[in-house]
Simulated assay, not measured.
Amino acid sequence: MKSMFSTLRGYRGISISALALAGVLVLGGCAAPAPQMTSLEIQAFQLKEFETDKTTAFNSTVSVFQDLGYIIDTASLETGIITSQSPTESGFIPFVGMTQTNTRATAFVEERRPGATSIRLNFVEVQKRSGGYGQQSGRDNVILDPAVYENAFEKIEEAVFIRSAGT
């Protein structure tokens, strides 16, 4: 009777060490961990200063969030906080169940000095899954793609320009 190891070794000439190596590669054991960004690196693309008053910056940010399809949850000029979320996309994945995905966007608008206001944006992708038997899971992923923030800031800058041109 052959042992399990000799059977594996004889399987089309593949050795056990080759199978182990393949398993490690498939599971990502050889992949280098993704480098972590520092808070200053993140803040560098999430924060931008505008030469305008707080009210204009705040109203422009709310307007851009709405233009991008976000639903405003809260907006307080006094605190400078804006919270919003995109419409939820639902789907079904076989053997997994129902999935729901949306993006939450927040902004903090702060007057730095008269005529200069900073805006800090944060985008988070929210995923929720529910399967049979009532299991639920979720995951929130901060979006760390600088291009996403750059796009939003370009639109806010345009909105600030339009609002400032009228005064």
Score class of each variant (00 low, 15 high):
residue 42 I to A: 02
residue 109 V to Q: 13
residue 103 T to V: 15
residue 52 T to H: 14
residue 97 G to D: 02
residue 117 T to D: 07
residue 35 P to L: 00
residue 112 R to G: 04
residue 44 A to W: 01
residue 77 L to H: 04
residue 45 F to N: 00
residue 86 S to M: 12
residue 127 Q to C: 03
residue 81 I to Q: 15
residue 29 G to E: 09
residue 119 I to L: 13
residue 111 E to W: 08
residue 136 Q to W: 04
residue 112 R to E: 13
residue 127 Q to A: 13
residue 56 T to D: 14
residue 87 P to I: 11
residue 16 I to F: 03
residue 142 V to M: 10
residue 30 C to W: 08
residue 37 M to S: 01
residue 14 I to W: 02
residue 116 A to T: 10
residue 136 Q to F: 11
residue 71 I to N: 13
residue 61 T to Q: 12
residue 41 E to C: 01
residue 36 Q to S: 00
residue 128 K to R: 13
residue 63 S to W: 07
residue 133 Y to T: 13
residue 118 S to D: 06
residue 140 D to K: 06
residue 45 F to D: 07
residue 121 L to Q: 04
residue 71 I to T: 13
residue 95 F to S: 07
residue 98 M to I: 08
residue 66 Q to M: 13
residue 58 F to M: 14
residue 125 E to N: 07
residue 25 L to W: 11
residue 93 I to M: 11
residue 113 R to S: 13
residue 57 A to L: 04
residue 80 G to H: 05
residue 30 C to M: 11
residue 124 V to C: 01
residue 41 E to W: 00
residue 28 G to D: 01
residue 143 I to F: 00
residue 74 T to Q: 11
residue 10 G to H: 07
residue 19 L to P: 02
residue 10 G to F: 09
residue 141 N to Q: 05
residue 47 L to P: 02
residue 26 V to D: 09
residue 24 V to T: 11
residue 74 T to M: 05
residue 26 V to A: 15
residue 16 I to L: 10
residue 121 L to A: 10
residue 100 Q to C: 08
residue 55 T to Y: 14
residue 36 Q to A: 00
residue 109 V to T: 01
residue 11 Y to F: 10
